[in-house]
């Protein structure tokens, strides 16, 4: 993997997604959206019913995250990633409808990998548990849908130099497998 950090901006284009390789260190600047289990279910249910979504997801990046409440003076509370496999049931549908990036933690299943290859999307790993540190790169947060879900509401986040690693790329490469193979004993 490269030791250089690549600075990318959202919305992501197919050209950028194709250039990103598993293991690349990147920082993301621009607008991303937070959504986790409950919000994903609602989005995918809307698509199934042929209804419009509360946000345009073409070219967008979703961060699997539900923050702690902001203290006075904070843009957002602690805001680290949640485990991504729980979104595996929903992500392929969103990717098919134009989602280009996902940020979470932990490996994605084969159905997501296939969708990422077919429609050119990328999956980034943020550091799970580094929530206080990560929140420093989120400059503004506002709820744009599903306020009733509390921490699980969809938030529009303005991020600057949000740190992550390309964990699984649109070419089918998986940095979890590559990394573990290198350090496995026995």
């Amino acid at each position: 993997m490269s030791t250089d950090i690549r600075r990318i901006t959202t919305p992501l284009t197919e050209a950028i997604v194709k250039e990103l390789k598993a293991g690349d260190k990147v920082t993301i600047t621009g607008v991303i959206y937070s959504a986790r289990d409950a919000a994903h279910k609602r989005l995918v249910d809307l698509i199934a019913q042929g209804q419009p979504l509360p946000l345009e997801i073409k070219g967008q990046t979703i961060y699997f995250m539900g923050p702690s409440p902001a203290k006075p003076g904070q843009a957002i509370g602690s805001a680290g990633p949640t485990t991504s496999y729980r979104m595996d049931a929903y992500s392929p549908t969103l990717i098919e409808h134009g989602l280009k990036g996902m940020i979470g933690k932990g490996v994605r299943g084969p159905e997501v990998v296939e969708a990422m290859k077919k429609h050119k999307a990328v999956y980034f790993a943020a550091t799970g548990g580094a929530a206080a540190l990560i929140s420093k790169s989120i400059k503004k947060a506002e709820i744009v849908a599903y306020e009733d879900l509390g921490a699980e509401a969809i938030r529009r986040l303005e991020v600057v130099d949000f740190p992550c690693i390309v964990a699984q790329d649109c070419h089918g490469q998986n940095y979890y497998e590559i990394g573990v193979a290198e350090y496995k004993r026995s």
Partner: peptide, 21 residues
């Protein structure tokens, strides 16, 4: 290192170490 720095920030700012409290 990120985990260590994160815990230091959480302690200094008195904010949650992890958003999942």
């Amino acid at each position: 290192d990120q985990c260590i720095v994160n815990a230091e920030i959480a302690h200094k700012d008195q904010v949650p170490i992890c958003q999942d409290t």
